[in-house]
Design a protein around this nucleic acid. Structure first.
Length: 491
RNA sequence: CGGGGUGUGGCGCAGUUGGUAGCGUACUACGUUCGGGACGUAGGGGCCGGAAGUUCGAGUCUUCUCACCCCGACCA
């Protein structure tokens, strides 16, 4: 049991905060709502980026970069879009500072006021579609399949490390298509890429579905999302993909000539995931000992810790340890050999557990005599001793096993915490108890969704793609319904 | 914006009826240790978020102010 870490079952959100800080992933910064992502946390993000980038490119996308600033006027061109984001925009009004005349530091120079204010992007649809207007003339220019890795700013009222910060890192894909069908296909393709990534790399099962009307992205005709269940019974929206129809093409007057010579507006999609995924990984798997990282995203997959009594012994152990390290690295595994002299082995054990390193190898004089090594796995905290000459064979398997084990664990947790509910009382009961996913009938109206939210804080997370058609009655209004939707209290 | 809380060595905290700042930890050095968060000895480091006030004297009392954190409304 990790000392200094709040117990997960006593105070989940305190546990989460503690964990982020103690595992050295991030810390609060001098700027309200903004965090410093520390090297260990950033290393995980880099792994996320690398794999997603690979998946995007494998599906035909390319990277580009657009400005951080968006002229205010761009924003107002798409009505729903402004309305959705206006309340949380940071605005640049001046471009110069000067020395205060009273000698009290530095003030904004009032003569340096911008003609037109600049918005710091909360998302880039507008600035990108402004460019697309110049790029697209003909169906031959389509599709455009662009992704950008960037930071965005949304002035949220309340922030939480990784889950919601004022500035956050993300990727945003912005594609342009000649037909409605092709754009919808793209929207679907990308939500599937996200779901695949969540399940394969993050070891987190997700539910894919449509957002209900009032949960949709500002300016979208349809939003698809992946929803994951966290260990405290709350849902986390882990990624979204939007079918934007011709809204932005119309707002920015982006037309093209199709095969038959006819002029039409371009069809659009956008899709994104953010550093919030870090929060999903943390809350999806970790325990009272600290972080549990999926091997595929762990910056350090294997740590080797020497146990020794003196320098000479350390030298001998290091020789073997370095050989093991080199052998594993040749197999593409990232290994850290921690021969620091300032902490004892026990301290290191606890520290790497806190940091979620999937596999720990401990080697001491006893092992050296027997040509063995102790292998400890982070996911279930079990240990065993294996012959050193089996390391190259067993460790890769073990990493795979841990990856699939934590996925299965998360999947079982979700199964146990998904409730098919038909009565309003039962709906309330689930929320009162442990929370979780609730599959219930809904009459399809915004009003009912709003009322349920008001009374319970639970929202329609999505209408799952695979929710089968069945006759039923809305859990709240009793009106007829054709399929169950996913309700939960969310982050 | 409403409610709650906190600002004191790097971090975590204590500081009584006001008397000139202390503990744990981390850090530095040396020695003993090392199979689940070692120990001893010796060191270095803070002017108490900021401003004004009361007082012979303020970490402590008063007023104002700033910042951050947590809970709610908003949201990825």
């Amino acid at each position: 049991m990790a000392k200094f870490l709040t117990n997960r079952d006593e105070n989940y959100s305190q546990w989460y905060n503690d964990l982020v800080i103690k595992a050295d992933l991030a810390e609060n910064s001098a700027v309200r709502g903004c965090m410093v992502i520390k090297p260990y946390g950033y290393a995980i993000w880099e792994k996320i980026q690398a794999e997603l980038d690979r998946l995007f490119k494998a599906t035909g996308h390319v990277n580009a970069y657009f400005p951080l600033f968006i002229p205010k006027s761009f924003f107002s061109k798409e009505a729903a879009h402004v309305e959705g984001f206006a309340k949380e925009c940071a605005v640049v009004t001046h471009y110069r500072l000067k020395n205060d005349e009273n000698g009290k530091g530095i003030v904004v120079d009032p003569t340096a006021k911008l003609e037109e204010e600049l918005i710091i992007r909360p998302t880039s649809e507008t600035i990108i579609w402004h460019s697309y207007k110049n790029w697209i003339k003909s169906y031959r220019d389509l599709p455009i399949l662009i992704n950008q890795w960037a930071n965005v700013v949304r002035w949220e009222m309340r922030t939480r490390l990784f889950l919601r910060t004022t500035e956050f890192l993300w990727q945003e894909g912005h594609t342009a298509h000649a037909t409605r069908e092709e754009a919808i296909e793209e929207t679907l393709k990308m939500i599937n890429v996200y779901a695949g990534f969540a399940e394969n790399s993050m070891a987190l099962p997700v539910i894919k579905g449509y957002k209900s009307e009032n949960e949709r992205f500002a300016g979208a005709l349809d939003t698809y999302a992946i929803e994951a269940l966290m260990q405290d019974g709350k849902a986390l929206q882990a990624g979204t993909s939007h079918f934007l129809g011709q809204n932005f093409a119309k707002a920015f007057d982006v037309q093209f000539t199709d095969r038959t010579g006819k002029l039409d507006y371009v069809w659009a999609t956008s899709w994104g995931v953010s550093t919030r995924l870090m929060g999903a990984i943390i809350m999806g798997h970790s325990d009272n000992h600290g972080l549990v990282l999926p091997p595929k995203l762990a910056p350090i997959q294997v740590v080797i810790i020497p146990i020794y009594k003196n320098i000479e012994q350390l030298a001998t152990l290091s020789e073997t340890a370095n050989k093991i390290k080199a052998g594993l690295e040749a197999l593409g595994i990232s290994v850290k050999y921690d021969d620091r002299d300032n902490n004892k082995p026990g301290w290191k054990f606890a520290d790497y557990e806190l940091k979620g390193v999937p596999v720990r190898l401990a080697i001491g004089p006893r092992d050296l005599e027997n040509s063995t090594i102790e292998v400890a796995r982070r996911d279930n905290l079990t240990k065993e001793t294996i012959p050193i000459n089996k390391v190259n064979e067993l460790i890769p398997k073990l990493l795979e096993d841990i990856q699939s084990n934590i996925y299965t664990k998360a999947l079982n947790f979700r199964k146990e915490n998904t409730f098919y509910v038909d009565k309003w009382d039962d709906f309330l009961k689930v929320l009162d108890n442990q929370g979780g996913f609730i599959m219930a009938h809904w009459d399809g109206t915004v009003e009912t969704g709003e009322k349920i939210k008001e009374e319970t804080k639970a929202t329609i997370r999505c209408i799952p793609f695979d929710s089968p058609e069945e006759e039923g009655k809305c859990v709240y209004s009793g009106k007829p319904s054709k399929r169950r939707v996913l309700f939960a209290i969310s982050y």
